[in-house]
Nucleic acid binder design. Structure first.
Lengths: 184, 184
DNA sequence: TAGCGCATGTAACGCGTTACATGATTAC
DNA sequence: GTAATCATGTAACGCGTTACATGCGCTA
């Protein structure tokens, strides 16, 4: 259950509403930990109930009222304790690999088409990540400790996209010669 | 819901029991799609109820009876149809990245320790995958269509592990200089 | 006037994990 | 005798997704 900790991490330096968090999870942190607004609102409720976050209603005019959430001391302690726990990794699942196991039987066309799409998609993501790196994270050694961590997450993202892109190339090259003579 | 399709894929060429499948998911296919035995047994029941698998009880002596599952024509059709659907990707979540976002506040030691563990772990996996490749998948171009697909999944695994390993190196190098002077 | 942005929620469902349960045979 | 292997299951819970719901203000 690390969504709660991701949320608390986002609240380390600033107070945010559920809506603000939702947008934060659409970029930066969200590249590495996806979450829908429904999940976020639920989680915020739970964290406030536990006493890890403090909720402050903020009346507004002309737009809906919002609720600001701030990390409490308890929340900070819980986060610090969590840093010492062993990380959980969910390997990440992708139908495409299962389909590859399947490719000997039947038409390989749709898989090839998907590989081409992926190539585009991962190329775009790679470009985005690299843009962010070039803008804000040149010269990693000179960054503050806090931003070194963020840089490293970004670097993992870049490596990941580049890797996938290369692999798409290999896969398309190998599969293009197939389909013509279907020896099985 | 692709576990069902992964199971059917495993049953393309052979009839298997739940137990057999469980072991298959501990290697090969399981590298890319993890599943516990509880999940598998449930899924098998569901697939048999749908008519996509045919269940045959196999009495045994000296050990518990088993149930063999075979793909039906309906099952084959469903699989073929699924090949044309767009793949779902679940990005895969890893606490470690969230922890990196957190590293400016508090002790970076546990994160560094985890990175060192990961380096070992991914090194081992890489070695395993490469061993398999060298044993069974040399010269990808000469493989049968069916085995080309499997080779490509394996290749993705190898690239992935190598990528992570490299990244661990970068991360450890960058973080080692930190912790001594904690300017924040 | 139609749609988007802001802002917050409820409800049902599906997938995955953890824990618990049984019971015989074989190997150390 | 103790553990591992074979073989199958149930039940509760947690996390994530999908669908549905409300309502104001601004822009095209």
């Amino acid at each position: 259950m690390a969504l709660s900790h991701a949320i608390m991490t986002a609240l380390l330096d600033e107070e945010l509403s559920g809506y603000d968090l939702m947008r934060k999870f659409e970029t930066s942190l969200g590249f590495f930990w996806a979450a829908s607004h429904q999940q976020i609102y639920q989680e915020l409720k739970g964290l406030a109930a536990k006493g890890w976050l403090a909720a402050t209603p903020v009346p507004q005019e002309g737009r809906p009222d919002k609720i600001h959430y701030a990390l409490t001391e308890q929340g900070r302690d819980a986060l610090a304790a969590w840093m010492h726990e062993e990380s959980r990794v969910k390997p990440g699942k992708d139908d495409l690999f299962v389909k590859l196991y399947n490719i000997g039987h039947g038409d390989p066309e749709p898989v090839i088409a998907e590989l081409q799409q992926r190539k585009v998609l991962h190329g775009q993501r790679l470009a985005l990540y690299e843009k962010i790196r070039d803008r804000h994270y040149r010269n990693p050694e000179t960054l503050s400790d806090a931003r070194k961590g963020i840089y490293l997450a970004l670097s993992a993202g870049i490596r990941q996209e580049r890797m996938f892109l290369d692999w798409c190339g290999e896969a398309l090259a190998l599969l293009s010669q197939l389909g013509s003579d279907q020896t099985k």
